[in-house]
């Protein structure tokens, strides 16, 4: 979904840049709390690197169309929503040098692919956990659902920005329908990959899955205690 230069006009690109900068500012403060446990800091770097890698793996979704993981929900569930926003923002920053996503479109891309995915996804994730049974395994279906919703959410964020500053005159409803339609399909891929990775990490290190905190509190405290005494 990397927006190239030229799709969005200058003023709205700048506005999206301001929104993205503000979101990153808030995320830096929030991430500080999420990274309270020091072993999570290098892990967050790994999550960003992993998202970069998986974003290269375009999968086919329909005739002549592909999609790839956006990773906002994956990062949010593993290391926390604010740290997740920062992870994807770092990925998008590095991708600029690969000419993937335009330089002036960086704010647009951060707003859609980092902020919208991680925050909308985190909201859906938390809501799902309210309904699901209170056990660590519930994190997997909650992450699946959140990832599924996060991709059309990013598509809608783009559509909204396009409505404000798109450089071509495309009817809003037409664009929204087309964007959401294809991105629901990509969302299924996003959901499968997210659930797979979250369940893998949950299987080996449930204490490192941010979204499972509280659900594995007892086990985590025991692990921390042994780490301190070791």
């Amino acid at each position: 979904m990397h927006v190239p230069d030229g799709f969005i006009d200058g003023p709205v690109s700048l506005g999206a840049g301001v929104v993205a900068a503000a979101a990153i500012g808030v995320a830096l403060r929030g991430s500080r709390r999420e990274l309270g446990d020091e072993k999570v800091a290098p892990l967050a770097g790994l999550v960003a690197a992993f998202v970069f890698a998986v974003q290269m793996l375009n999968f086919p979704v329909a005739a002549g169309t592909s999609g790839h993981l956006l990773g906002g929900v994956l990062a949010a569930v593993l290391v926390g929503p604010w740290t997740g926003v920062l992870c994807v923002a770092v990925v998008l920053l590095v991708q600029l040098f690969f000419a993937d996503g335009g330089l002036t479109a960086y704010g647009v891309n951060v707003t859609c692919m980092a902020v919208a995915t991680a925050l909308v996804g985190w909201l859906v994730f938390r809501l799902a956990l309210v309904v699901l049974p209170r056990r660590p395994g519930s994190v997997v279906p909650a992450a699946f659902l959140a990832a599924l919703v996060s991709v059309p959410a990013a598509a809608l964020a783009f559509t909204g920005i396009y409505a404000l500053g798109g450089t071509a005159d495309i009817p809003l409803g037409t664009l929204a329908a087309a964007m959401v339609g294809v991105h629901v399909l990509i969302g299924i891929g996003e959901a499968v990959i997210t659930a797979l990775v979250v369940s893998s990490v949950l299987a080996v290190r449930p204490d490192l899955v941010h979204g499972a905190r509280g659900l594995v509190a007892a086990r985590r405290e025991a692990a921390l205690r042994s780490a301190v005494t070791a």
Binding site: M1, H2, V3, P4, D5, G6, F7, M56, L57, N58, F59, P60, V61, G64, T65, S66, G67, H68, L96, F97, F98, A99, G101, G102, L103, T104, A155, F158, G166, T167, A168, I170, T174, L175, A178, M179, V182, H183, L185, I186
Partner: peptide
């Protein structure tokens, strides 16, 4: 990985605004 256009590129092609994309400033990276 699939080399097909991604979701946004495909929509931009179908709706006729793909040509408004300009080269990245880092296209020579």
């Amino acid at each position: 990985a699939s080399g097909s256009p991604d979701g946004l590129e495909k929509v931009a092609e179908d709706k006729g605004f793909i040509a408004t994309a300009t080269d990245s400033d880092l296209a020579d990276s």
